[in-house]
Design a protein around this nucleic acid. Structure first.
Lengths: 191, 191
DNA sequence: AGGTTACCGGAGGCAGCCTCCGTGTACGGT
DNA sequence: ACCGTACACGGAGGCTGCCTCCGGTAACCT
């Protein structure tokens, strides 16, 4: 076993970055079921190259998601700073929903990776979401805004559901608005 | 234009019924994305025959769903008869959720067909669900159990979301339990 | 400069979708 | 009972996408 941490060969790194960039666009346009071959084609590499860098679809998605994750973290910090305690949880969950909805069809895989029974490529993308939600939720519960029985997992699951519903068609957005309203009444302390 | 209501030829009817029966089993096992070719193969007919009877996947699913719809209707009547007004809506929505969850991946297409902008093959399967939900909801609202702002479309959307969440993996069921609890708190009058 | 090794990329096998068309057969009229 | 026709059958085949394997290429190290 030679030293495995040799730096990546230059052409490899170039191809990898190119693939991620192209994948990002394709995911935005066609959702997570977009054709991997098309991505390879547009990046000007063979299918083999794509599959070597990203053994399966989830690995590629996870890589693309790392960037978006930074944006989500920033949103979390902004909310902690600018939004009052009463609306903080709502605002945060809205961001989570938007994040999960960023690529059509992402909600399914993400929910699947939520509970880290065995680690999946998407696991890291979830952990931070859960962690931040736990923080905001605990705050809200101590402030008497959120019901104590609710858990962070529940809430992230709810956000994912909303993201899913919102992406099921033209009126999905309206459906999701109604459901979001019900959910907000549901996790808050009545009154 | 000859008389178009001539009875179907006997072999055609036989094949059609056979296809539906086989499709039913395959849908249960593999969800709505199951291979149509496999269904045709097992039914002993060519792909052409399948596509002639059911021009697209939704048409086949809709046909299979007609039977389950009868069961749902029966459940509705049972609930109206046996369940007290306080739990009636909960019980009904549970049935809707179970119905939508009967085939993995069905929730998406069903939600898409909920608002009948233009009629889809799955439209009829939705209308009755909406109608019954409207009835139970109105009852509950008059009884002061459900919040007046909630609509039947919202609730069916919620049931579909839960069905979706419950089918996303092993722990999806637990996730869905938590979300269902939140939703129930959300559509009821607090207190 | 030259050898080593990591990496490339395309060919190819497989499965699924859907269509088209030559063949076969159920049915209604005589 | 027979026949003609229109309806239905089913398989071949074109297309796309997934994924693997391997001969060749070029980057890197000395």
């Amino acid at each position: 076993m030679a030293d495995t941490d040799r730096p990546m060969r230059s052409d490899a790194r170039r191809n990898r970055e190119l693939l991620v960039a192209v994948a990002r666009r394709h995911l935005r346009l066609h959702g997570v079921t977009t054709s991997l071959e098309a991505i390879a084609r547009e990046a000007g590499v063979g299918p083999g190259t794509l599959y070597r860098h990203f053994p399966d679809r989830d690995c590629l998605v996870a890589e693309v998601l790392r960037v978006e994750n930074d944006e989500l973290r920033a949103a979390g910090e902004r909310i902690a700073r600018d939004v009052g305690p009463a609306e903080r949880l709502d605002a945060w969950l809205g961001e989570v929903e938007r994040h999960v909805a960023s690529y059509r069809g992402l909600s399914g895989p993400l929910v699947g990776a939520l509970e880290g029974g065995q680690p999946t490529p998407l696991g890291p993308a979830c952990e931070e979401m859960i962690a931040t939600t736990t923080r905001f939720l605990a705050e809200s519960q101590e402030a008497g805004v959120a019901r104590p029985e609710v858990t962070a997992h529940d809430l992230v699951g709810c956000a994912a559901m909303l993201a899913w519903l919102g992406s099921t068609g033209p009126q999905g957005t309206q459906q999701a608005d109604g459901a979001r309203d019900i959910l907000r009444h549901g996790y808050k302390v009545p009154g």
